[in-house]
């Protein structure tokens, strides 16, 4: 193979950092497939319409208790952060599917947004105290 014109090493020998992003994408995908429909049902339909669940299921006090419980914090962080990483990866690769040559700039925007969202969620959960 003649790659001498290319000052960088050929793509065949450069290790892709993709396993990190693909693992976050996969974790987010699994989580969203398993719980996102139920989250939509609970937060978007059941509680506002007063169906199935107690009227105060999502009251401020109940939600604050969830967010102040260490296990609750971990679950909230996982849901928010992994959904973001999943979406960032999917949108980035969908751009490629659509023929838009999304390079490192787009990587920075999408994965950067997921990273900032993760930081923001973690920060907010810490500020709420225990």
């Amino acid at each position: 193979m003649n790659h001498s014109a290319n000052p960088r090493r050929p793509a065949q020998t450069r290790r892709s950092p993709e396993p990190i992003f693909w693992a976050l994408f996969g974790a987010g995908g699994m989580l969203s497939a398993l719980i996102a429909p139920m989250l939509v049902l609970i937060t978007g339909i059941a509680v506002p319409l007063g169906l199935l669940l107690p009227a105060d299921a999502m009251s401020y006090h109940n939600m604050l208790a969830l967010a102040q419980n260490p296990l609750g914090k971990a679950i909230l962080l996982a849901v928010v952060a992994l959904f973001f990483w999943h979406a960032a990866h999917r949108i980035f690769h969908s751009l490629h599917d659509l023929g838009i040559d999304a390079g490192n700039g787009a990587r920075l925007i999408f994965y950067g947004a997921a990273f900032l969202a993760t930081l923001a969620a973690a920060g907010a959960l810490l500020l709420l105290g225990f």
């Binding site: 050929p10 793509a11 065949q12 020998t13 450069r14 290790r15 892709s16 993709e18 396993p19 693909w22 690769h93 969908s94 490629h96 599917d97």
Partner: peptide, 16 residues
């Protein structure tokens, strides 16, 4: 495995 993990490897696939 280095062929799978390379930049030209499996992660190009978007599961079409």
């Amino acid at each position: 495995m280095p062929v799978v993990g390379a930049e030209s490897g499996a992660f190009h696939c978007t599961a079409v």
